[in-house]
């Protein structure tokens, strides 16, 4: 089993220029327990999921997603981004146990 919090943000391998729309892929290893799965006869696996995904392009918060437990485990999120300037792209995941995970990649145009 992969460790919770292992994460990746991937930019396209191909060359991209200024103002090109590129696809950014993100994924984090997380069980995203929704609190509805039974565990033997001991009860239910308690809720534990990524409830917030934020994407910063430079200092600007460009995407902020409030998620419910309706997102699959190991949340995968791909979004299109217009590469208008060179800046770090930072993705932040927060889970319901107060853990925060961050990954940064550099957009170069």
């Amino acid at each position: 089993m992969l460790k919770i919090g292992r994460r990746a943000v991937r930019l396209p391998r191909h060359e991209y220029g200024k103002d090109d729309v590129i696809e950014v892929k993100t994924r984090i290893i997380h069980p995203n327990h929704n609190g509805r799965h039974k565990y033997e006869d001991k009860g239910y696996i308690a809720q534990h999921f990524i409830h917030l995904i934020e994407v910063y392009y430079g200092d600007q918060l460009i995407i902020s997603m409030d998620a419910s437990a309706g997102i699959s485990q190991n949340p995968y999120f791909t979004f299109a981004l217009k590469a208008t300037h060179s800046a770090p792209l930072r993705v932040v995941w927060k889970d319901t146990h107060g853990e925060e995970y961050t990954e940064t990649v550099d957009i170069r145009v």
């Binding site: 995407i63 437990a69 999120f77 981004l81």
Partner: peptide, 14 residues
């Protein structure tokens, strides 16, 4: 935010 420049997403849901 308009700074995203696009609104095209992919994800997996339950």
């Amino acid at each position: 935010h308009p700074g995203a420049g696009s609104a095209r997403w992919k994800l997996n849901i339950r």
